[in-house]
Every structure is written in C-alpha cells, then in structure tokens.
Computed example of a mutant assay.
Amino acid sequence: MKKVFTLLAVVTFLVSCKTVRVSQDYALGTDFNNYKTYAYFKAGIDEAEVSELDKKRILRAIDSEMKAKGFSKSSNPDIMVSIFTDSKERVDVFNNMGWGWGGGWGWGWGGGFWGGGFNNNVSRTTEGVLYIDLIDAKNKELIWQGVGTAPLKSTPEKKVERTNEIVKEILKQFPPMPKN
C-alpha cells in the first residue's frame, strides 16, 4: 500500500512539473492568413520588466520561431509583436501518507498492523511568465496573445535554453487552428 501511495505522489509530482504551461487567446473571426510580416512594438518591448540580456534572449527566440513559421521582419509590418514579463512564486505541497499490514515469523503473533503517518513536502519555485502579444499593425488592435509560465533558471546557458523553450511552446499555438 505504501508503494502505491509513493507511486501516486511521484506521478502527481511529474504531471504538475510540466516544464512550460501555455495558453492562448485571440480575436475570433481574424483571418491569420493575411499576416506575413512583423516588427517589434518598441514601446511594449521597452516597458518589459526584465534585464536587457533576458530581453535580447526573448527577442532572438521570437525571431527564430517567427522565421520558422514563414514570417519575415519588415519596416512596414502586418503585425506588431510586444512582450510583457512577470514572475511569481509557485508553492507545491505534497501530502504523503502510509498505512499497512505486516506479517512474519517468530515469537508471538505472526502479523499485525503497523502505524501510519503523514509526511508533507513543500516545494517553492520562482516561475517566469511571458506574454507575447500580436497586434494588427493597421488597426492597432490586439489579435492574439500567448502566455507561457515556467520555472526560471540561473546560469546564462540555462536561461537561453529555457527562453527558447518557453517562446517555442507559446508560438506553437500561433496561428490558432480553426475549429470545425
């Protein structure tokens, strides 16, 4: 029984630790096939509360993903790209309990109940939140927003990997697939 609870706790932990959690929202009725070029919305990029190094990492990752999707940068773009960043502390509490029956040979009775107990584990992680906004350049209206949340990394190499991963997962949802 203890093994079942331990296995359940491990599976729950692994499911809750998906590296990047993403979501999207977009303006219904938008024909995303009309958009082929992009540029950065400088005012939005300048206001992002993140270091200049991290900002450059984000913009390079966006450039890479947009290029992979067939978009090109332009001085007369179809869409403007803006970003917003935030961070939050994620607290995960894992409750483990153990109960069971025992048995064996020797003096006295051959079986019995061994007591149970509860064990609480608390995990705290700082997570970064990245919003990528796509704005129709002509109408100046938000047409799509993707949000990604993931634990932050501390070394420059890991920051590059995590930034690329977050941006890729967010933009994987763009353009949105039409519903049948």
Rank of each mutant, 00 (worst) to 15 (best):
K2T: 13
K2S: 05
T6K: 14
L8M: 13
L8K: 05
V11W: 01
F13Y: 14
V15C: 07
S16P: 00
S16N: 12
Y26P: 02
F32I: 05
F32Q: 00
N33G: 04
Y35L: 10
T37P: 04
A43F: 08
A43I: 03
E47R: 15
E47H: 15
V50H: 13
S51H: 14
L53K: 12
D54R: 14
K55N: 12
K56M: 12
K56Y: 13
K56T: 09
R57N: 10
R60D: 06
E65Y: 01
M66D: 03
K73V: 02
P77D: 07
V81G: 11
I83Y: 06
T85Y: 07
S87P: 06
D92A: 13
G100K: 09
G103I: 03
G103P: 05
G106A: 11
G106T: 09
G106F: 02
W109H: 11
N120R: 13
V122Q: 00
S123M: 10
K138P: 02
K140S: 02
I143M: 02
A150T: 09
P151T: 01
P151K: 09
S154H: 12
P156Q: 08
K159D: 02
E161H: 15
R162H: 00
E165C: 06
V167A: 10
K168I: 00
Q173K: 01
P178E: 05
K179H: 04
